[in-house]
Simulated assay, not measured.
Amino acid sequence: MHNNKPGDFSPYASVFSSRRTALGAIASGLLLPASCVFAKAAHHAPVAWPHALQVPGGVAHLALGPAATRPVVRTAEGDLPVLVLGDASGWTAVLGIPLAAVPGEASVNISPAEGGEARKLAYTIAPKKYREQRLKVAPGKVDLSAEDEARYERERLHLQTVMATFSEPLPSHLKMRAPVSGRRSGSFGLRRVFNGQARNPHSGMDIAAPTGTPIVAPLAGKVIDTGDYFFNGNTVWLDHGGGLLSMVCHLSRIDVAVGDVLPVGKRLGAVGATGRVTGPHLHWSISLNRAMVDPALFIPA
């Protein structure tokens, strides 16, 4: 078995998160300090959602300043497209920070849409310590057979392509609603220990609810993947645009199909206990520029 398999109820997220390497010295004319990043926010109405939290698993709001057209922003590591919202009076890059990111200085690359010199924009990732949880599950869900190992690998590769989705139109706003009502039974970033074996941090929010409880779309989006996965059980992925995706899993039933376009609040399935679980609940993950980020940042407290 692989000791680096994630140990949450949606294990694929950490597989895709890449560790940030330490950034080398960058010419001062190209790298803006974090104070400059936020000083420009006064030029336009700031992005309200999700809440900004510049930690591993959080979201950064990087003010890009005014421009006639939307700038193109990509991550410095991985060269991944970043969601940019706003208007000509001021643009903001809304950046997902991977759970595996190393605290410290980081940057994104900005290319003006109308031409001009590309530049780097700096931001700082603060450290955050997440809690630990110990769980008992069926041994076959931790120590995989050769057959299950092969299935897991096939699913992992498939879900890499799902998470790479970056589509338009971009979302008009990023404020979400919880997909189901209930008690939060597992928080994002929780480091899981299954049967005494440590796994990667929990990449989503668990919400306890009885089997059959309706699950709804947290934000308008298009269904881009459904399936029954080894760890996640019955799963639905929604594309909200601009590299912002939602995943809900462990469903008892799936009521949508790939290609369906759902308004916010539309039913997409029901709570269940499929996949690797200790009881019925909903696991909800949010991916932003292929980084799993804390869903709590997208919903009212």
Score class of each variant (00 low, 15 high):
L121K: 14
T69G: 06
A76V: 13
A138M: 09
A146F: 08
P169K: 10
L157W: 13
G186T: 02
G104I: 08
K141L: 09
G65D: 00
I97G: 08
G90I: 01
V72W: 09
A164G: 10
R131H: 12
F166A: 00
L159N: 07
Q133N: 07
R184G: 07
E117T: 12
K128I: 08
L85C: 03
Y130V: 07
Q54H: 08
V73K: 03
V142F: 03
H158K: 15
G96K: 10
R134H: 09
E114A: 13
E132G: 06
A178K: 14
P112G: 04
V108D: 12
S111E: 14
G86R: 02
G58N: 01
L64Y: 04
M163C: 09
R156K: 15
L83G: 10
P71S: 06
D143E: 09
G78R: 07
K129R: 11
H61W: 05
A106D: 15
V73E: 00
M163Q: 13
S172Y: 03
P66R: 02
T92S: 14
V162T: 15
L85S: 07
V73S: 05
L135K: 09
P71V: 02
S187H: 09
L157I: 10
A76G: 15
V72S: 08
G104T: 13
A88G: 14
V73I: 04
